[in-house]
């Protein structure tokens, strides 16, 4: 199991467009991937779950990947976060 913390810098937080891309990125991998915010965890492969967390600017979140391709998964998600300007 691997995890990584992110600090959200995007003004509108994890919203529609970036949320979709994150979910798409996560869904490519077999590992179970969760997004945790304020002690609430959701499946990062479900848009509904991600958006229901309501992650806004300046939020601190943790993404956990558990499975064979956990390392690759986390790397890809990190990339996506940076590309979308969600986190540094």
């Amino acid at each position: 199991m691997e995890k990584k913390n992110f600090h959200i810098i995007a003004e509108t937080g994890i919203h529609a467009r970036p949320a979709t891309l994150l979910v798409q990125a996560a869904s490519k991998y077999n590992s179970d991937i969760t997004l945790t915010f304020n002690d609430k965890s959701v499946n990062l492969k479900s848009i509904m779950g991600v958006m229901s967390l309501g992650v806004g600017q300046n939020a601190d979140v943790t993404i956990t990947a558990d499975g064979e391709d956990e390392t690759d998964a986390l790397a890809a998600i990190s990339d996506a976060m940076k590309k979308e300007g969600l986190a540094e």
């Binding site: 958006m51 229901s52 967390l53």
Partner: peptide, 9 residues
């Protein structure tokens, strides 16, 4: 399941 402070979704 989800409300937004911005109310647009």
């Amino acid at each position: 399941s989800a409300v937004y402070p911005t109310g647009h979704a």
